[in-house]
Design a protein around this nucleic acid. Structure first.
Lengths: 133, 133
DNA sequence: CAGCATCCAGCTTGATACTG
DNA sequence: CAGTATCAAGCTGGATGCTG
C-alpha cells in the first residue's frame, strides 16, 4: 500500500487533493459544495443575472450566492460582467475553464439523478435491516 | 427562461437536484462533500479497512469517517464487510453503483488537479486587482 | 481494531436591515 | 437591481472517554 506522499512522488503529481494542505482541495470544495455545484450547473445553461440565478438555485440565500460567486470568480471559473447603468445590471457566465469543470460536474450530477431509484431502494433496505422493531 | 419546475415537467426528469426538496440533492452532497468525495476517491483504488482509510484520507476524524461511511453505505455506494473475528476486521469497498459514481467524480477531481496552475493564476489576478494598496 | 456517546467551540448559515 | 453589514442560531466537526 502506498501513502498519499508516496503516490504523489511516484506519479509526480503536482497537486493531490488527498493531501490536507493541497490547494486543489479548496477549489474542489468550491466546485462541489452545495451551492457551488448548483451554481455551476445553472450557469452551464447560459448567462444569468444575480437574481435570476437566485431563483434558479432553489433555496440559496442572497448571501451564500454572493459568496459562492465570489469564490468561483476568484478561481477563474466564472466571469462577472457588470454594466455601469442605473439600475445596475450584472451578468455571470462560465469561463472556458469553468465550462470544462461544469461538464464533468454535470456528468456526475446527471448520473446520480438517473440512479436515484437505486439509491432510494438501497436506503430502504438499509433502514429496514436495522430498525424493524 | 424556464423555471426548475418547468424543466422538470418538460423533460420529464424524475429527480432534479436543482429543486430544494429533491432527494438527489442529499445524495449529491454525500458524494461531493469534503469527506464523501475523498472517501469515494480512496475506495476507487481498492478495499480498505477502517483505519487504513483514515490514514489515506488526510485530515479526516474518526467521527466524520464513520459518519461518511454510513451515509455512503446507506445510499448503496459502499459495501461494508465485517468479519466477526477478534480483533474485528471490517473492509469497505465500492459497490458497482459506487464505482460508476466514483469514476465520474474522479474525472472531475483529476481535471481540477490538472488545471490548478490556471486556478492559482486566476486567484493571483483577482487578488491583485482589488488589493494593490 | 472498529467503532459509539457525549460535550462544546466555532464556523456556517439565514434573517434582517441597509447602501449605491 | 445588486449587492454589503451585522448578528443570532444551529449545525459541523474535533477531542475525549468508553465498549465489544
Amino acid at each position: 500500500m502506498t501513502t498519499t506522499q508516496e503516490r504523489t512522488a511516484e506519479q509526480n503529481l503536482p497537486y493531490d487533493v488527498f493531501s490536507k494542505a493541497c490547494p486543489s482541495r479548496g477549489t474542489l470544495e468550491h466546485v462541489t459544495g452545495r451551492w457551488g455545484a448548483l451554481t455551476l450547473g445553472a450557469l452551464h445553461e447560459g448567462s444569468f443575472r444575480f437574481n435570476e440565478l437566485r431563483r434558479r438555485v432553489d433555496g440559496v440565500s442572497e448571501k451564500m450566492l454572493s459568496q459562492t460567486l465570489h469564490a468561483l470568480e476568484r478561481d477563474g471559473l466564472v466571469h462577472r460582467e457588470a454594466q455601469p447603468t442605473n439600475p445596475p445590471r450584472v451578468d455571470y457566465e462560465l469561463t472556458p475553464l469553468g465550462r470544462e469543470v461544469a461538464e464533468r460536474l454535470l456528468a456526475l450530477i446527471h448520473y446520480v439523478e438517473g440512479r436515484m431509484d437505486d439509491v432510494l431502494a438501497a436506503r430502504g433496505r438499509y433502514d429496514e435491516e436495522r430498525a424493524p422493531r
